[in-house]
């Protein structure tokens, strides 16, 4: 199956079936989820099928790449291409979050003050929402979702910040261990990172339950609930993905993959982890703190 050319300066793989399988998976999942949202319960099963296809595809595609890498097919040029690919992928993720942060800043700095009658919003307040007078955190003039409380920054979120920062340190220690040829250190620090990652997700989940059950803070809580759950939700999803990728790296490290010179997969995931970390700092500051 290795349709590639190991020697020479250029690496050009030949035919691959994973992309088309991936596309089928994506389209199935999308169509399934859409039908589910439109009220068809069967849609949920279809979506699940699509996700399975995607998971299988990723497992096999990455498996093939790992195999080829371990077999020494990739030269430095390929390595650089992979690095660029990962780097720019992360940048695109940053821009995805930028849209939600943009929504948050816009709501806090512009639309909510306008509804309250500040700046250019005088007429809006007088004519449309004369009774509205409460600023951020707000669920809007129509009091969507009813009264709610917010989560204070210096409780669980602060702990989560510590956890993520610590995991940033452990992943770096793992990298140093790898570069210092210490397999044991690598495995140890990686395992610590993975555990910290999942603990974060777990704590985040408790926070959500708390918000829904005790604080009446839900997705329906107007603009506050919308931005809160959109930002923390997508972040939590990314942490889950990142921790799972780290887990894969851990398994590979245990299997004896990676050398002190060549370990792009490790680095790519580490970059991703740092990205998730930095986004969290933004969240901590702008969503929880100020």
């Amino acid at each position: 199956m290795a349709h590639i050319h190991p020697s020479g300066d250029y690496y050009v793989p030949h035919g691959t079936k994973w992309p088309i399988i991936g596309s089928i998976g994506l389209a199935t999942a999308a169509a399934g989820f859409s039908s589910y949202l439109n009220g068809s319960n069967a849609g949920f099963t279809v979506m699940f099928g699509g996700l399975l296809i995607i998971t299988y595809m990723m497992y096999r595609w990455f498996g093939q790449v790992i195999q080829e890498s371990e077999d020494g097919y990739y030269n430095d040029q390929v390595d650089v291409s992979f690095r660029m690919g990962m780097g720019w992928f992360i940048f695109s993720e940053v821009m995805f979050f930028a849209a939600f942060f943009g929504a948050l800043f816009y709501a806090r700095a512009l639309s909510l003050p306008w509804l309250l009658g500040e700046g250019d919003g005088l007429l809006t307040n007088i004519h449309l929402w004369p009774l509205f007078d409460e600023g951020w955190p707000s669920n809007g003039p129509a009091d969507f979702g009813g009264d709610f409380q917010t989560i204070p920054a210096w409780g669980l979120p602060a702990l989560n910040t510590l956890i993520l920062l610590a995991s940033g340190v452990t992943v770096t220690l793992a990298h140093w261990a790898l570069k210092g040829d210490s397999r044991q250190g690598l495995i140890l620090w990686l395992a610590a990172t993975v555990i910290l990652g999942y603990v974060f997700v777990y704590l985040q989940a408790t926070e959500y339950t708390h918000a829904y059950n005790e604080l009446n803070l839900t997705m329906e809580s107007g603009i506050y609930g919308s931005t809160f759950f959109m930002l923390t939700g997508f972040h939590g999803f990314h942490v889950t993905m990142g921790a799972t990728m780290l887990l894969v790296i851990l398994v590979r490290a245990i299997k004896g993959h990676f050398t002190r010179e060549k370990h792009f997969a490790f680095e790519g995931v580490a970059w991703y982890w740092h990205f998730v970390d930095v986004v969290w700092l933004g969240l901590f500051i702008f969503v929880y703190w100020i």
Partner: peptide, 9 residues
């Protein structure tokens, strides 16, 4: 959610 609805802020 109410990103684009004034009633929700």
């Amino acid at each position: 959610t109410s990103f684009f609805s004034a009633a929700g802020g």
